[in-house]
Amino acid sequence: MAVREWLALVAFASAIIFGTAGMIGMFRFPDPYARMHAGGLLGTTATFSVFIGSLLLAPDRATAARIVIIMIFFLISAPTGSYIVGRFTWETGLPVWKPKKRRNITDKEQEK
């Protein structure tokens, strides 16, 4: 078993970890903005890790060159997609979800 297969295994394992966490975050957070953080960022990283693993396993040079070009364009296109969704959400005027702060409750209790 070659070294590059071990490296590809590491890349694919990190892709699975990040991807699973992204899916969990997409269902766990209560607000589109936070879902966008979890899904968008972790999804981008998982996809990028898949690209790195595929680059390590690429059978010939033509495949490897195309994967490198795809990686560079992906670094531009993925944040742009997130930005389009973010601007759409912001322009529809959705309020930002805020967690109930424990600090405020303790402040009131101290006042009492």
Binding site: G22, M26, P32, R35, M36, G39, G40, G43, G81, S82, V85, F88, T89, T92, L94
Partner: peptide
Amino acid sequence: SADRLVALNI
């Protein structure tokens, strides 16, 4: 619809 767009992005 923002949720749907997030899912579509991923």
